[in-house]
Amino acid sequence: MSESRHLEIAKVGDVTVVRFVDRKILDEANIQEIGGELYALAEDSGVNKLLLNFSNVEFLSSAALGKLITLDKKSKTKGSVLKLSNIKDEIMEVFRITRLDRVFDIYDDETEALNAM
């Protein structure tokens, strides 16, 4: 698996599980880097099931949402599965307000998401 500054990447069976290192995903340079690291994963031929675990994330801005939307498109284009889990209540509110809870496949915890893969 490739080196990543902002992501902790692990394999659980055939699922690539990603945890975010940053508690706040907000400044533009960081968001660009995180986006780049996520896109590289999505385009990796060895990654067909991707789970983003947000347990560490306390804050994210709309620019970060934009990266997730692009990641979702890349995953769909490639035919791979993308799921999200462990999103804190306030960030979940952001997903609901923007109706992105309808775009993404979101689970309360990692186990539930893994079982649904």
């Binding site: 709309s62 934009g66 692009t70 979702d72 952001v94 307000i97 923007t98």
Partner: peptide
């Protein structure tokens, strides 16, 4: 409106809506 069905998958344009909410 970023929550219109046609705009849901547009990567930008959500900032003002979040501010208002």
């Amino acid at each position: 409106d970023p929550t219109d069905d046609d705009n849901l998958e547009v990567p930008s344009g959500r900032g003002i809506m979040l501010m208002r909410n």
